[in-house]
Design a protein around this nucleic acid. Sequence first.
RNA 1: GGCGGAGUAGCUCAGUUGGUUAGAGCGGCGGAAUCAUAAUCCGUAGGUCGGGGGUUCAAGUCCCUCCUCCGCUACCA
Length: 538
Amino acid sequence: MNRTYITTPIYYVNAAPHLGHAHTTVMADILKRYRCMLGYDVFLSTGTDEHGQKNQEAAAKSGLSTDEYLTGQSDAFRRAFDLLGVDYDFFVRTTRPFHKTQVQFIESRLKETMAPDGEPLIIQKLYSGLYCSGCEQFKRDADLTDDGFCLEHPNLRAEQTEENNYFLRMEPYRADLVTYVEKNADFVQPEQYRQELLVMLSQPLEDLCISRPKARLSLGVELPFDPEFVTYVWIDALVNYLTNVNWPDPSYETRWAGVEHLIGKDILKTHGVFWPIILMAANVPLPRRISVHAHWLGAGGQKMSKSLGNVVDPFEVIETYGASALRWFLARNMRVTSDSQISVDLIRATYNTELANQLGNLLQRLLKFSAARFDGCLPASDLDPKDNEHLKAIRQLVCNAYSANNLPSEANGFEPVELASIPKMAEDLLHAIGLMNEYVTREAPWTLIKEPANASRVQSIVYANLDGLRMVLEGLWPIMPDIANRGLAMLGQAPLELTGSPRTTLAGGRHEFIAGRLVGGARIGVIETLFPRIETIA
RNA sequence: GGCGGAGUAGCUCAGUUGGUUAGAGCGGCGGAAUCAUAAUCCGUAGGUCGGGGGUUCAAGUCCCUCCUCCGCUACCA
């Protein structure tokens, strides 16, 4: 059994969950389910990052106590992922005690570590620069006006400030990391981002400031070796990937060996530079893979913004179209290498044409035909050779969706289903649906049935397509688990479900797509409309 | 400023290492069918592949340059 581990970033709770959070987390869930279908054991973690400056500010503004604020916000993220149908196995809050003690544990270890150059890994030094008290950040000259005023706080002059912070020396590890990235072609996927990482690593790395004086930031993990400081929030956050699987308890190893970090392209540096170096310094194996995706743009190809009015709120979409429709749109249109567009109009168009007209209607036209012509039952399972050929072709398409692989890493034994191949899978399954609609229309069983001699052929046509649709629904389960199971239920099939504690495997093990599993002649129950058409909403 | 990505039919996107008349879906138009959520199926129109220059027998595909958009470059995740 391949025990693997997928992580999402953990999300900063200073604002409400948005489409970007939904996207990465849904993709993680789809990947998990796909791999479970293939027989893997997959552990999925997500959660909330509850330390740092902006969270502290947001909590202060909220009027609630910090704990109340953080808990409320974290719950909002958890509810969002529940609403999206994400089957996460662990939801971390960085404020949980175990996480905090283990952050301190790794920091203590790093503090005692000598870098490859024989000097201490962590050093303390004076940092001086221009500090804007409005932003609570050090500023570069480039970020200030000629007069020394902050661009975001034109009434505040940035002040020369000195802080005695702790730094992690990254440069001594750069050469080893470059070698690692060069030797492991699939360490960062897709290739484009691996090249970007190599560019980042082509020049000397500055020391990474890993502390914040408590005087200006109290919401964080106290440094184990200096109570005057808390930990820089990114260090704290990254360590969740380890603490979620109980590191440093040796039990973490089986999961960690197959860990894959899903990230947006905006956080490649933290995951591709900071994190591997921390791991190397702490003597922990590097992650198996970092899978990177691009972002969503709003209508017009413009970055989403309130002023442009092109923000897509995942909750509104779920309310109108359902979580499955949102998951389908994301899976179908996501591109890993370039930003893609999303808007409510595009979602509605996809929902009506692909889901309601093509998928939902196909299921319903076949089931209603069966119910009306075959005495309320599914057709008999005896297949005419021609229909059998058609069914085999449909099965082949579904199987293709599960073997799609555009990576060179198959030989390395890693998962055959990749983030980048999700849209291709959705397209393969949609293609199968299209073939069935064509086939049914061309063979026109409603015409054939007028001739009593054609009775068995009519049953064969309908059976072949219902059985094909059954396999397509099974194939769609990772993308739309709820819809798939409702469709399967109408066909008298048992639902596909995750099982275990945690729920990391598919009940019944690896799923095989086998033609003929639809039970011929079984009584048809209630026929529901999976995707009611939704016309333009003013 | 530096670096990376993108710019292909009205819309959303595919286009292997350069090679026959540039593709799909949606939308439009015409038709067929009527089992079905007026859904489905067939046919059809529509593009000087961001602008310009270059290499080549041949460029959406390579090189140069310009324009536009997205992102990284910053101790905001």
